[in-house]
């Protein structure tokens, strides 16, 4: 198997290639994503996870009209290069952002750290690691993801437009949750803090 070429991945990210726009156009100059439009953060995600997502966009297990043609235009080597490059970038770190305390944020914190076992919903962080920093290779980081993105993915699992989660774990979580819970947990994960006041 050919090794990933991080420099080629960086070039792809910054300039794109034939028929493929630069990743950074949507995912940000450093793979940090775009909060308002909900393009996800890629920086610091596990390499295997990123590669699997590109394959899923091309293969239709993740139905996404923007990513499907792009992923389909990438060859296997380019996918590996891009995944390797973004995995090498630093992940999310709290940078003193504060979030106004709200019942919604508090609910999000509870779901992320304790879950809702009355409905058999485990805590996000039970699998995605303390603080939602991710557990390579299978569990991506959640911390710092745009809430628009997290929410859309929860809905995608619930409605089976995304079906590439291992063992259907996320589908089984999403189908037990309400829209209000999606909103709360997505809001929380954008700036997760262990303090209910969002400090």
């Amino acid at each position: 198997m050919v090794h990933a070429d991080r420099l080629a991945g960086a070039a792809l990210a910054q300039k794109g290639s034939k028929g493929v726009p630069a990743c950074m156009a949507c995912h940000g100059a450093n793979g940090e994503g775009q909060t308002a439009s909900g393009f996800p953060r890629l920086a610091g995600q596990p390499e295997a996870y990123l590669l699997k997502q590109l394959q899923a966009f091309a293969g239709g297990q993740r139905k996404n009209s923007q990513m499907a043609p792009i992923a389909s235009a990438l060859d296997a080597q380019q996918m590996r290069d891009a995944a390797d490059y973004y995995a090498s970038l630093p992940g999310w770190r709290p940078q003193g952002q504060t979030r106004a305390p709200s019942p919604q944020y508090a609910l999000g914190l509870r779901l992320a750290t304790s879950g809702n076992w009355s409905k058999d919903v485990p805590a996000c962080f039970a699998c995605h690691g303390p603080g939602g920093a991710g557990v390579a290779p299978h569990f991506p980081a959640l911390a710092g993801q745009p809430s628009v993105y997290t929410r859309s993915q929860m809905k995608a699992w619930q409605t089976a437009t995304r079906t590439n989660d291992p063992q259907g774990l996320m589908q089984s979580v999403a189908e037990k949750m309400t829209d209000a819970e999606f909103d709360a947990v997505s809001l929380y994960l954008e700036h997760p803090s262990l303090d209910e006041k969002g400090k």
Binding site: N116, S118, K119, D120, E181
Partner: peptide
């Protein structure tokens, strides 16, 4: 009633 406020769906575990 179960403790959850929004018990829209009952899961077998309930």
């Amino acid at each position: 009633p179960p403790p959850a406020a929004d018990n829209k769906e009952m899961h077998p575990a309930d």
